[in-house]
Amino acid sequence: MQYNFDEIIDRRDTGSVKWHYSDDTIPLWVADMDFKAALPILDSVQRVVDHGILGYTKPTDALYDAIINWHSNRYGLDLTQDNILFSPGVVPSLALMMQIFTETGDAVDAVLVNDPIYTPFMTKVKQNKRTLVMSALKEVDGKYQLDLKDIEAKIVEHKVKLYLLCNPHNPGGRVWTLSELKALLKLCKKHNVAIVSDEIHQDLTLSGHTFTPLLEVAEAEGYAHNVVSLTSMTKTFNIAGIKGSMIFAKNETLLKKISQQQHLNDEYELNLFAYTVMQSAYEKGGEWLEQVLAYIEKNIEIAIDFLAGHLPDIKVMRPEASYLIWLDCSAYGDNDQALYDKLRAAKVELNSGIKYGSEGHLKMRINVACPEALLREGLNRVYAAFSGEV
């Protein structure tokens, strides 16, 4: 079927985090899409409601098969049921991984993340009383690269035990290549540093780029005992309000340790609707995903062309995955809060880059996963804010 992504759906007064305003602000920030979920997903929810019994639920063989087939067919990742654990979300899993790979107390272990990075990578390290170590990404030819020399120096200096990788990267949109992943894994293996890879944006990889699961590389390099991948159907299919994610690992001892800690935390089950939509998404959501990616790519071009024509001093980092675009707005101010306030005064909201680390200074993250008409109006308001019309 053909989906209509131009449809504008009123999300105000629904409890939406993204659309919480009392005025006509256009939100181009929080990472969810303003598109209806795929019909097979909505139908699966309706079938549960029609059945009328919302009792205790466990994952079925059909659900496991849907997960295994999706990742095998798309990425060549070979999984069995034993390799898959369920979690309420990727962010809770980040906290869980610190319990698995690091210690606190008298000798606090260090956790390394890149800068800039999705905010919970930093906050969860601090909240769990681990030492946060940051390695700035290098911008080369308009895209981020890992600074392996700096990463190794930080690992040695701070005796880092765990590296939290974001692949594809949020907010920069990089899809790390096989060679980059091999180099990073070789370095971490050299210093016995565990790697946890957040791969929630994997299915939103854009044309011309190839996503490589880190576990696939780790297994080939004999380091799977120290590598875990985290992913979810929620970003892929715009169902973030239905919490649910997966933890993938290949080593039996590691899987047992994770499972035991999950049971201690009581964080090993999903709800009925999460299991239901996860299965329907992976079994029947491919058509919707193909169409929404085409629409997103069109919107990315619209945004890049608009900014080039109206605000050419904004440096745009073209994403290789997802619907989030990283913007360098340093030509329009020298204060992060002032830049954000300019946009809010124009009744448009973007994510302030400084929330993603010091490398986000004077940058903004814009979400283009919305109907084209909303995007164009939002971009006009960005222009009004930075051109002094507001």
Rank of each mutant, 00 (worst) to 15 (best):
I8V: 14
I9M: 07
T14M: 08
H20R: 12
Y21T: 09
D23Q: 01
V30P: 12
A37C: 08
A38H: 05
L39T: 13
Q46C: 07
V48Q: 00
G52R: 00
Y56V: 11
D61F: 04
I68P: 00
S72L: 14
N73C: 11
N73H: 14
Y75Q: 05
L79V: 07
N83W: 15
S87M: 14
V90T: 11
S93T: 10
A95M: 13
L96M: 13
M97C: 12
F101Y: 13
V108H: 08
V108E: 10
V111A: 02
V113Q: 01
V113K: 03
I117W: 06
Y118E: 10
P120S: 05
P120E: 05
L137V: 05
D147Y: 11
I151R: 07
I155T: 04
I155Q: 05
L162S: 09
Y163S: 13
L165E: 11
G172I: 13
G172R: 02
E180W: 07
L181W: 06
L185Q: 07
K186S: 15
C188T: 15
K190P: 05
K190Y: 15
D198L: 04
P213K: 03
H225C: 12
V228D: 04
S232Q: 08
K235N: 12
F237K: 02
M246R: 04
I247P: 03
K257V: 13
D266M: 05
F273M: 14
T276N: 09
M278F: 14
W288S: 06
W288I: 05
W288G: 02
V292P: 08
A294Y: 00
K298E: 12
N299W: 11
A308E: 13
V316Y: 03
I325W: 02
D328G: 08
C329T: 13
K342I: 08
K355I: 04
E359C: 02
M364K: 02
A369W: 03
E372A: 06
A373H: 00
L374Q: 03
A384M: 03
